[in-house]
Write a protein that binds this DNA or RNA. Structure first.
Length: 435
RNA sequence: GUGCCUGUAGCAUAGCUGGCCUAAUGCGUCGGGUUGUGGUUCCGAAGAUCGCGAGUUCGAAUCUCGUCAGGCACCCCA
């Protein structure tokens, strides 16, 4: 029986050309996160089942995790998301950490799903979290980071939209304004989440089915539908907590606009699947109709750290998946030209492999990345390889150079060619690298 | 988990109303065009049990069924 060369369903091999794209995306993420003072952490890929059962969505834990019993009979899960892990870590050092805490990580996550565009079984996800700030400044900052990454990747404001909502607002709306019980409210959130994908007439029917005849008589379902349509919530008589949540959303939008983020809107249909969100939630959408799903999102989850038996810490964060992000970059032509790591491709002429070593290791010692062509093929073929790999400089090493102690450096793009000593070669290549 | 679509060299495709198929073309890979320098071009080579299994037939890449794999949508979500 022959072995399959395919990677496991829904998981990817990263050949160098793929890895390069990933390195680029992760590099931008790290740069921006660190520019805001976020520190990188990591955690095990395997976690005890319980930390997910509490607050991740039932469907994900019940049907979409890789879970099994270890040899000691412990129920474990390959993490489907990072938030419970980071909450566990913060709770573990609740007392000794200095707040506010700014942490980020780029973990790989697994979910047992049927793969399709924008969704695989294994993906990587940047997680950026800010612990210990109660005020709106936290929301503001976390969105600046998210937007900063998009900007650093070359996205312009017309390419994506940041949509904001508040769980607190929606909960209050459903409980006090629409007078729904918990089961009704839960059903309705799911429904609203899917609103844009559902046929409107059907949506109206489904909403109607949730309300009791009594509630229907009061016109509550109609009130909801018109609210979802207009997004004009000014006349709604909300209770204190909800109207505060609504005010916060408006204030946040103002602050973001002042910071130059103008592509941000209030959208009451943004719900987010996880159960742990407590207040502001947001999702970033690709404006390209081809990708009508949300690219990434996050929100405030003030209660999660407290689940580990310590005093709660107010927290806000977001997760940005590599698969959807890469789709976005590809569709908008934002993937940069691949860049080789090789600075110099050493072309050996004649049987000089041994005697060329000195020069090559000197260059490497000076911080130059040198690839040696040891195939013994003729120079013409060696140059072709360098061209194919998009290396800028070729260094010829032959009898003549070895006798001279100086080597022929050729810039493959300009065609310039001259002999220099090792020091000079290193400085020329370094100058080039800077540009 | 449900529905729809697709499987031909490493990749992209042609062939698919059954026989001129001993499966073609392009890209890629390797070698060569007299031995120290360019992507073009020219010549040549390697590389495919036509996803797998069964059936129909004198004859199957081509038709039928099964199976596996992949893609897309739903669900859910990044």
């Amino acid at each position: 029986m022959t072995l399959s060369t395919q990677p496991y369903k829904g998981a990817r091999d990263f050949y160098p050309e793929d890895k390069r794209i990933q390195k680029y995306m992760f590099g931008v993420m790290r740069n921006v996160a660190e520019r805001f003072g976020y520190e990188e952490y990591d955690a095990p890929i395997l976690e005890p089942l319980e930390i997910f059962t509490a607050k991740t969505s039932d469907e994900i834990v019940g049907e979409q995790t890789y879970s099994f019993e270890d040899r000691g009979g412990r129920k474990v899960v390959i993490r489907p998301e990072m938030t419970p892990s980071v909450s566990r870590m913060v709770a573990g050092r609740r007392q000794e950490l200095t707040y506010p805490l700014r942490w980020y990580s780029i973990p790989n996550l697994w979910r047992y799903e049927r793969p399709q565009r924008g969704r695989l079984r294994e993906h990587w996800q940047l997680n950026v979290d800010l612990f210990g700030i109660d005020g709106i400044e936290a929301e503001h900052e976390i969105l600046l980071v998210a937007d900063g990454i998009m900007q650093a990747l070359g996205a312009t404001k017309d390419m994506y939209t940041i949509k904001l909502n508040s769980r607190k607002l929606m909960n209050g709306l459903m409980r006090d304004y629409l007078q729904l019980d918990e089961a009704q409210a839960h059903k309705l959130s799911r429904l609203i989440d899917r609103m844009h994908k559902t046929d409107h007439a059907e949506f109206v029917d489904q909403v109607g089915a949730i309300f009791t005849p009594n509630q229907h008589e009061k016109g509550l379902d109609k009130a909801l539908l018109s609210l979802l349509k207009t997004s004009n919530w000014d006349e709604v008589s909300l209770d204190a907590s909800s109207s505060e949540a609504l005010k916060k959303i408006k204030q946040l939008i103002n602050m973001l606009e002042t910071s130059g983020i103008t592509n941000v809107v209030f959208d009451p249909t943004i719900m987010r699947g996880f159960d742990y969100y407590t207040d502001v939630v947001f999702e970033v959408f690709d404006n390209n109709p081809k990708n009508n799903r949300s690219m990434f999102g996050g929100g405030r989850y003030d209660g999660l750290v407290g689940l580990f038996g310590v005093k709660p810490v107010p927290t806000i964060g977001f997760g940005m998946g590599d698969v959807t992000l890469q789709n976005f970059l590809e569709d908008h032509g934002l993937i940069p030209e691949p860049n080789t790591e090789t600075d110099i491709y050493a072309v050996l002429i004649g049987d000089v492999y041994d005697r060329a070593q000195n020069a090559i290791s000197s260059l490497r010692g000076l911080g130059i990345n040198v690839t040696v062509d040891s195939t013994g093929r003729k120079p013409e073929k060696q140059i072709r390889v360098a061209l194919k790999k998009q290396v800028n400089y070729v260094l010829f090493i032959g009898e003549s150079e070895l006798n001279d102690g100086r080597f022929t450096l050729k810039n493959l793009y300009s065609g310039e060619e001259a002999r220099y000593d090792i020091q000079k070669i290193a400085s020329i290549v370094k100058d080039y690298k800077k540009t």
